[in-house]
Design a binder for these strands. Structure first.
Length: 624
RNA sequence: GGCCGGGUAGCUCAGUGGUAGAGCAGCGCACUUUUAAUGCGCGGGCCGCGGGUUCGAUCCCCGCCCCGGUCACCA
């Protein structure tokens, strides 16, 4: 993710997150940090300069060692004390440590490893199953079993979440905590271990908050302290203890009991830099969520936004429904569908590209206000703004037209921003965006006319966009290629996309589209070549597409037929003729307006994310 | 699909035509309020995969795989 400054809204106990956020802030102020973009693939280096200095010193001292006498223990097989009591895996590791070095030259070890774990060709393993760290963790698990500790118990009687404890008592002073003697039982994943022999600290995280746990040998049953000695970074534990503050004022649980809850067998990413490799973050989102608190916060924000949309619409009498995703005729949008097949029926089926035609059937059925928030699938190119499956809100509103929709859309966006962000202004990249209503309204042909005039230095008339050959000539002068099948309207939209989209930073309704590119929209009253349709642009992204719905079945049939002839004329992407949809309209659909809002792009906007993959938990990746 | 950048230890990253490095993580020792704990010591690498050039390739060349960016296609 591009780093959402909005997302680090302070949780006092979230020490590591706060520190990382401090690093983020420091990145904006070069003096404190390395700032080099050279050795990172995801932006400038976040490490403090002292890191590099320390690295340099360590390097120097290593060189010194090389010149000195060899260490007396060099060449001996070490069997660490921790492994001595009983851990078979450790003995094996110790025993094979030396041979491994010798065999490295002849390749014997490599061959053996390759036979056991043949790596897929051309890929990189993110975890090595028999690495030292994994063996160590397995050994610790076995040792727990030997102690009679169930390594995967069935339940734990948690009294409070970490977040609940922090919010209930995290504001209390040391004196208040000592006087109150509050005992609690909580649980979470170990995110840090700081050990001092008899005094030890864990940082426990439950996904929403983090809390420190103080482990003292003489405060715990011997069994529990033995458990502690076998813990690894990432294990799940339950803790019972009294709340207090350490000398350094850190809010802490003084553990009197420790329960083992589950083992983390694989080493986790680093505590300080976290996980930045975007490929691993997307493919193994669970790792991202474990170590990057801002990832969790982003998806919580996304959830809040969706909830806000739902509540907004329900409060206005809209009924939430679910319509088919498997369709025998994909319609409602111009897009290439995913094709599949139903075995029992032996028919081809398509993943839907839009729910539109089904939702309007429901309007025909008398559901006057209806909406659906769900997935659409389009078998097309992927980009920072396109994932093959994406989430869309569509809603339909009887007796309203597209001007009503503009007002409702404004209200909806402001409400969502306030619910999700607590503000109606946001920062996207280097630009401040205000979501305050009313949004700017701009006729499509006016937007194109103005942009083209500016670009060419001569006045372009609206008439230049009405006739096919004049529009094509204009496109040619602008250096935009036009295919033979394109009519004036399609050319106008093409020019708009090339010249205007990027400039629409503040929320703007671009409205009144050519009829020919809007086969489901209703014409304006005074101009049959123009429809009552708008698209909402924010930060150069198309966020919404909406129109007064065409409900004249004869006109709808003509529009579908025009699509068919456009296809015959060579245009690849056209709407199919949906006979049942036309039949539904023949039963009568009340005047209505409908809108589609891309939820992923909206969340990108709200979280200052510049790739759609940042806001989708499991974006599509090429399978490995 | 074209072009550009990248793939080195579990993670974050340096580096070189001549036996591969750091920090964190791991292991050992010390340490009873730490917090990127600290100090000392020790392990850990098919340098994405395959071929070529070379006495010798992680490095140079060719092909492939995967990721990112960008353009094109595509709404």
């Amino acid at each position: 993710m591009g780093g959402g400054p909005r997302l680090d809204g302070g949780r006092p106990a979230d020490v590591l997150a706060a520190r990382r956020a401090a690093g983020e802030r420091a990145r904006a102020r070069p003096p404190g940090v390395c700032g080099s973009a050279r050795h990172g693939r995801g932006g400038p280096c976040r490490r403090p300069r002292s890191d590099h200095r320390r690295g340099g010193r360590a390097l120097a001292s290593r060189a010194d060692e090389r010149d000195g006498p060899p260490h007396p223990a060099a060449g001996r097989v070490r069997v660490p004390a921790r492994a001595r009591h009983a851990v078979a895996g450790r003995h094996q590791r110790g025993a094979r440590a030396r041979p491994h070095v010798q065999h490295r030259r002849c390749g014997a070890v490599h061959q053996r490893a390759a036979r056991r774990h043949p790596p897929p060709a051309g890929t990189r393993m993110t975890t090595t199953e028999d690495s030292d760290q994994v063996l160590q963790r397995r050994a610790n698990l076995e040792e727990l079993r030997r102690l009679g500790v169930a390594p995967y118990p069935n339940r734990f009687d948690r009294q409070a979440t970490v977040a609940e404890i922090v919010s209930a008592h995290g504001g209390k002073s040391a004196e208040e905590l000592d006087a109150a003697r509050i005992t609690t039982r909580t649980a979470g994943r170990i995110l840090a271990i700081r050990s001092f022999g008899k005094a030890n600290f864990l940082v426990l995280g439950d996904g929403q908050a983090r809390i420190q746990v103080y482990i003292r040998e003489d405060s715990l049953p011997a069994r529990d302290f033995r458990i502690f000695k076998l813990l690894d970074f990432g294990d799940w534990v339950g803790v019972e203890g009294r709340l207090f503050r350490t000398k350094t004022r850190e809010f802490t649980v003084w553990a009197s009991r420790l329960e083992f809850l589950a083992k983390c067998l694989l080493p986790l990413p680093e505590k300080w830099h976290g996980l930045t490799d975007v490929e691993i973050r997307f493919r193994q989102r669970y790792l991202d969520l474990i170590v990057n608190p801002e990832a969790r916060q982003l998806f919580e924000l996304r959830s809040r936004a969706v909830t806000a949309i739902r509540e907004f619409l329900v409060a206005r009498g809209f009924l939430e429904v679910e319509t088919p995703m498997l369709q025998s005729l994909p319609g409602g949008a111009l897009a290439r569908p995913f094709v599949t097949h139903h075995n029992a029926l032996d028919v081809p089926l398509y993943m839907r590209v839009a729910p539109e035609l089904y939702l309007k059937r429901l309007v025909v059925g008398g559901i006057e206000r209806v909406f659906e928030i769900n997935r659409n699938f389009r078998n097309e190119g992927m980009s920072a703004q396109h994932n093959p499956e994406f989430t869309m809100l569509e809603f339909y509103w009887s007796y309203a037209d597209y001007t009503d929709l503009m007002s409702l859309t404004e209200d909806l966006l402001v409400d969502v921003a306030r619910q999700a962000l607590g503000a109606d202004e946001l920062q996207y990249g280097d630009r401040a965006i205000s979501l305050k209503a009313p949004f700017r309204r701009l006729r499509l042909r006016e937007a194109v006319r103005a942009a083209a005039s500016r670009r060419l230095g001569v006045e372009v008339a609206e008439g230049d966009l009405r006739a096919r050959d004049r529009a094509a000539a204009l496109a040619a002068r602008l250096g935009i290629e036009v295919t033979p099948g394109m009519e004036a309207g399609a050319i106008t939209v093409d020019i708009f996309e090339r010249l205007c989209e990027d400039e629409l930073v503040q929320p703007t309704f671009v409205h009144d589209f050519p009829t020919e590119v809007s086969p489901l929209s209703k014409q304006t009253q005074d101009d049959p070549e123009t429809v009552e349709r708008f698209e909402l642009y924010v930060a150069g992204m198309e966020i919404a597409n909406a129109f007064s719905e065409l409900n004249d079945p004869a006109e709808q049939r003509r529009r579908f037929e025009a699509q068919l002839s456009a296809r015959a004329a060579g245009q690849e992407q056209t709407h199919a003729l949906d006979e049942d949809y036309v039949r539904a309209l023949e039963y009568g659909m009340p005047p209505a307006a409908g809108a589609g809002i891309g939820i992923d792009r909206l969340v990108m906007l709200l979280t200052n994310s510049h790739s759609i993959r940042d806001v989708i938990l499991f974006p599509l990746m090429r399978p490995r």
